[in-house]
Design a protein around this nucleic acid. Sequence first.
DNA 1: CTAGCAAGCTTGTATATACAACTATTGATA
DNA 2: TATCAATAGTTGTATATACAAGCTTGCTAG
Lengths: 241, 241
Amino acid sequence: MTNPITKTVTKAKFTVIKQHICDNIESGQWQQHSKVPSENELALEFNVSRMTARRALQELTEQGLLVRTQGAGTFVATFKSQSSLLEIRNIADEIAQRGHLHSAQQLVLKEVNASKETAILLNLKTDDKVFYSEVLHFENDEAIQLEQRYVNQKLVPNYLQQDFSEMTPHEYLSSEAPLTEATHEVEAVLANKKVCQLLNIESTSPCLQVKRRTWSSQGVVSLATLTSPGDKYRLGGHLIF
Amino acid sequence: MTNPITKTVTKAKFTVIKQHICDNIESGQWQQHSKVPSENELALEFNVSRMTARRALQELTEQGLLVRTQGAGTFVATFKSQSSLLEIRNIADEIAQRGHLHSAQQLVLKEVNASKETAILLNLKTDDKVFYSEVLHFENDEAIQLEQRYVNQKLVPNYLQQDFSEMTPHEYLSSEAPLTEATHEVEAVLANKKVCQLLNIESTSPCLQVKRRTWSSQGVVSLATLTSPGDKYRLGGHLIF
DNA sequence: CTAGCAAGCTTGTATATACAACTATTGATA
DNA sequence: TATCAATAGTTGTATATACAAGCTTGCTAG
């Protein structure tokens, strides 16, 4: 490495082993469930220590490419055990990444009585007080998403004092109560008249609706319904192999 | 460990350190961007070797909880850098998991000329021959998803000889050409008259449409459009923290 | 005062070693 | 034949060590 001219980019040894294993699987040489060389065999073959060979196997296992069982060995995973993942992001981030301008309009911000369903989902009693907000998100002055959100009072007591045209509810909640968990449901629906008006769409236009429930270590924080016109918005995803 | 009665379940040391770090983050003690103790500091504090402390930091980094930069240190990740992931699964698997019966009806299986758009997406020339299949999926005798799929002839030459009421196209393709990559787009749409008839829905019913493009190591394998009635089908997701 | 260098800390890679925990096979015994 | 026990092989955890590579800080020379 003393002479930068002749310097070559030498990959770390464990990545070489990983590549070798990937190649064998992707080319079909090693079929599903077939046994992969053991740590010791790989160490011998590539002239590295067992710990280095182990690292290659370990990382591929975390990626879902291999399956390991103590005592038995390492095997090629079944293809259906590979999960294909769709990333759900903050609308503001998405718009920013497209290079467009995001803005938001706060339509409603008040305290309401929890409906039966809302109470259950927020782990409260029916008619307990909850905070409710409606925020309309714009991409370059075009309405693109309506956010309707119920928030647990106890966990976020200052919710009503915020201005959600400046900071999105998601950003505020993240700063107040670090999220530890979330579930999503994605549906295609027809929006009701009020929502259609806000989003400036026909009443027959299909909408993509994401229902998101978020937890912090203290319990269920919030319940959000995100509605977007089907012709202006889509979710994009990428397989993690 | 000689006496099974007094045997206690002792967690591995690195998991104890992981838990300690998680607790500090989830409780809000350690805010975003704040510096986490270095490997050496943790090793000292927990009386373990540096490599063990390292493993704890490493795994939390892979989970997206921490961010590390060589030379600078380890820091609590920003919450927006946590990705919320929606798992896209095979319709047959999903139905099976619900304990319902999956069946499929093969409507079309033939060779067609690629349209301009299809050709581009499959990385072929316009009017090149491609295989095309239409399969209708049932959950307990109720039509729940229409699968329209274009397949690259060169990579899967025997596609036309299959019977897709027995094995789903996805299963067959997985066995023929191991998938290395896939992209998805999820939209809400209104189905055309033909599709509405097949799925037994009104022409005004919104549908969830997933477009999936899959690769093997040889190139683009197939292009599928999966259309499901919005009132019968939804995608469920879970945050990986 | 500033530019640049050096020291010290951090994480990244790699090795050698030891033992624990688990599995599958083999062989001996009833 | 059936059952149990020993054994060899595999992955899992943990340590000590060494050096490479990158960032930060502070000092020094100009």
